[in-house]
Structures are given as C-alpha cells and as structure tokens.
Design a protein around this nucleic acid. Sequence first.
DNA 1: GCAAGGTC
Length: 617
Amino acid sequence: MKVIIAEKPSVARDIAKVFGATTKKDGYIEGKGFTFTWAFGHLLQLAAPQEYGYYGWSVQHLPMLPPKFKLSIRKVKTKDGVVDDPSVKKQLDTIQKLFDEASEIIVATDAGREGELIFRYIYYYLKCKKPFKRLWISSQTDEAIKEGFRNLKPGSDYDTLFNSAHCRSQSDWLVGMNATQALSLSSGIRGAVLSLGRVQTPTLAMICSRYLENKNFVPETFYQVSIHPDKDGQVFKAISAENYKTKEEAQAVLDQVQDVDGGFPQGGHILQVEAKPRKEPPPLLHDLSSLQQEANKRKGFTADQTLNILQNLYENKLVTYPRTGSRYIGDDVFAGVPALIEKLEQHPLFGKQATALGSATLNKRSVNAKKVTDHHAVLTTGENPHQLSADQQAVYDMVAGRMLEAFHQDCIKEVTKIVVQSGAKFNASGTVIHTAGWRSVFNDKEDDKKDEENATLPKVTQGENLPITAKALLEKQTKPRPLYNEATLLKALETAGKEIDDEELRYAMKDSGLGTPATRASIIETLIKRNYIIREKKNLVPTTTGIAVYEVVKNQQIAQAELTGNWEKRLEEIRSGASVTDFQNEIKTYTRAITSELLAQGKSLKIPAAQTTGVKA
DNA sequence: GCAAGGTC
C-alpha cells in the first residue's frame, strides 16, 4: 500500500478526490489502494535548550551549541504549562501506523523548502526507513495533481533542499536562542525576556528607526503662491512652480500676480497645456500580505485578525488557501475564473459588476503560471457564503472585489497639466477618468491623490489669457515620513525595508524579504508581546524597552535585514549542492561573536524592570 | 522564559 502525506488536510482531500478515494478515517482517507494522510504544518520543532541539558538561563551555558539537534513534538500552552500538543501527538501516531504499513511513501507536502522540512522532520523523528517519492506541484487542480503523479521524482532529488531547510531552522535556533539569553541575562533584570531573532530584530529596528526619524524631524517652513484663473466661470487652482524659503520672496511673487483686483482683466497667460491619456492597469489579485494591508487600511484590522478571519473563511471552503505569497494564478485556475465570476452575480455589492464582467474579455494581468509559487493568489471558491459575521463579510468582499478588479479592463484617464504665467509660473493639474474600468468595482478615490489636484480642469488652449480672480500666499511645512502602521510595515517587510512602490518590482524581491506571508502577523504580535512596541491608533510605536533594545543592537548584524539576504543566498547555494558544514561553521562563529558582544553590551541597557515581559514575581 | 517556520 502506498501512503501519500500532505502538508495539510485540505491538500490531502484534494488529492484523494482525484484518486476517487472516499473512505474517511480518523486522520486519513482511504481508497483505491492508497491512503492519504496529512500534517498540520510543522508537527515537529527543534528541541528547546533544556532538552540538551541547558537547564535554566545561565551565562555559563552560552553560547549553546548542541552537538546534535533533537526534534520534539510541537508544544501548546495550557494552564499546566507548556505540553506536547495532543492533536499533533495523535496525528503523528496515525502517520507512524500508516508508514509502518506502507510499501512506499509519496511526499505531497507543499512544493518548497519548508514543505520539504515538514516531511523530513516527521520521517526522521519516526525513524522511518521506507522509500519515498516526491510530488511537486504548484496548483491543486485535478489536472495538475494527475500530471504531478505521472511525474513523481525520486525523494533523494530533494536532499539538498532539505539540507538548506535544516540549516535555516538550526541557524535561527542558534542565533535566536543564544542572542535572546545573552541580552536578557546581561540586562541584569531578573526574569526579563528580551528576545532577539533574525526576523524580529530587523523588524523592530525598522519601527524604531522610523519612529526616531519622525520624532527628531525638524519641520521647515516654506511658502507658495496660489492663483485662481477663471475660464468662463469655471475657476481652477494653480500653484507656484517654485517653493520659496522666505515669506518675503513669496510676497514679491504674489505682488506681481496680475489679478483682476490689481487692475488686470486678463492677467493669466496660458503658456502650456498638456493632456495625456493614461492607461492604469488593474491591481494584481491578492496574496495574504496585500490583503492584510488592505484590511488594515479599510477596516483597521490587524494583520493577525485578517489572517484569522481568512483562515476561518478557508476552513468554511469560501476562499482558497490564504497563506500564499503569490498574486498570480496559472492558466488551469484561470479556466475556472469565468464560473467564479458568474457565482458573484449573486453578490449584493458586486452583482452588477460581475454580470458586466461576465460578457467582457477578462484581463490576464494576474495570470502567470511562472509566478505561482507554493500556492496561487487568494480567490473565492464559488461556494455561496451565508451567515457571515460583519468582519468575515468584509474580508470576503475584499477577496471577491479584488477578483472583479483584477480581471477587469484598464482604467482610462486623462491627466492634464496647465502652466499659467502671471508674473511667475504656476502649475495646475487634474485627472479626469474617461473609462473607469476596474475602478468601477469599489469606486474608491485614488489613494495617492494630492490635495492640490483639481478634480476636473476646464478646457483651455495655449496662448489664451484668463482673468485671475483670487491669489493667496500659502505657508506650508515639510513633513516627516510617517510612523509605520501594520499596512506600511507589512509592505516594508516584503522588500526588507527598501521602499519600492512598483507592484511588480516589489514582487521580484519576494525572496529577499523579511519573514514569510505565514509568519509576518505573528512577528508583529511577538514584538507587542515582548512589550517592544505598542499599537497607538493605527500606528506601531516603540516603547522605551523597544528603543533600549534597538540602541544596543542597531549596529549589529542581527538588526540588519541584510542578514536574511545573506543567509538566503547561502541557503540557495546549499540547495544547489554547496557545503553544509561551511555554512554551519560560519553560523557557529557568528553565534559565538554575537553572544559575547551582547553579554558585554547588555549591561548598558536601561530599562525599568516592570517594562519587560516574563518577569517572575 | 527564548527563534522562525508551518497550520487547525
């Protein structure tokens, strides 16, 4: 008998369905000579320090460098402390029984580094010796699954992938556990937990450095002049092309404006008119991060809330797999899109849009099989939702609405720029939407609209002279970059802090971002739990503890996003066959260095004991 | 008491 093991129940069900296996057992599905079982993500983790004999937190143990790592069952917190998760234990027993009976194992965990690790940790923990083959597919449609089974790979083809995954896991443990204990112990605060890690610390650093930049920003005053030219009763606003440092300069420009009150009936000379049509393509489909950002902007949901709501919708089969990092779908999935859109015709908000889209040519911007990684973009499933809570409905609508947008036509607008001469030069700009296209779905205002922009501009021609009915001197101040909120932080994590607005360019940097779609919400929650940051309205603001930790580590490698970038590069080399021990030795060297540095530097930490978490009474 | 990774 062959056993197929998937990363999660939903995938096992999808595969079993293709085989026509329908007998549901406890923890697996049976039929047609196969059994289909599953994990729930990582069932096993690297054992905690005490399991190597490092009892309690002690400087004498540092750095902790276990000669051989052990695996232990995933833990869960109960009132009696931290224990093996009973549901995980039970599933492992089931898997063990099935592996014992198996002639061959087919590995169907997600097609990626962590998916490989999830299986291998189980396989080695259970001391299984059975041969295994690898199913490698990036979409769960029937055809993709069948094709994948025709193309099963030898399990050993993925040994180097496992090596890179294993290195990632061990390195995070070594650096995180040691750095955390080193800083906590050297802080001198009894029971303090000052955690550090490859992902959480650069994230904290980003929040702190932006906060300090914002707080220390010295606004500069500058001046502008505005005029109101009048075209046959239609008045628009134009702003001086230059900003002025002093009020006097601006006043001089203002005085030279040839307005009606100053005795100039037609003192505004149209120097230039430029009207350009612009096509604005629809946004890509949602991945988890973009959905979390939108839900934060629209509804103020935290990243964690959005993930929980989505997981719930997923478990109720209303949306596809949520923890995806892809904003694309393959052609096979695209083939099913018209039917999904038709289903949305019942939707109270988008029904009309869905109907209209049903008879139009669909935009294929979000269709690109090469950009589908372990999972495709989030879609609705075609199941009809009922009895959703307001929050569930809101998130569901964001998924459904984005689908309609993504497959909609471009928005066609005309961007007009007018240059008016009246003493000095003045600019006016305005945007007129000709064909709303995808923008008709939500009918939102553009988020990047500047406050000086005119909604519509009158038709004027070059050489024309217009009366200027008003003029004013404007006093303005330069503004600092805003504090991070969850939406802007999530976006920044995708590109490891580099500011890239272009959607597609940002996408290309996916592999060098901080954290993964599945973990970013929990990174934010960890920083909050440690009392490093707090939510203040929508903003994420560091506490004195957070700032103090940042001050100690800000120049260290562990606070730089580049650390992840460097690791990823090395892990990728390992995947293509480079030495594992070289990397492991470098990590050990780094662990020793960071540990001793933190033991020395932690003494300079100044935090009131009450502001650290985990303080024992 | 501690990492980052996955998922019910």
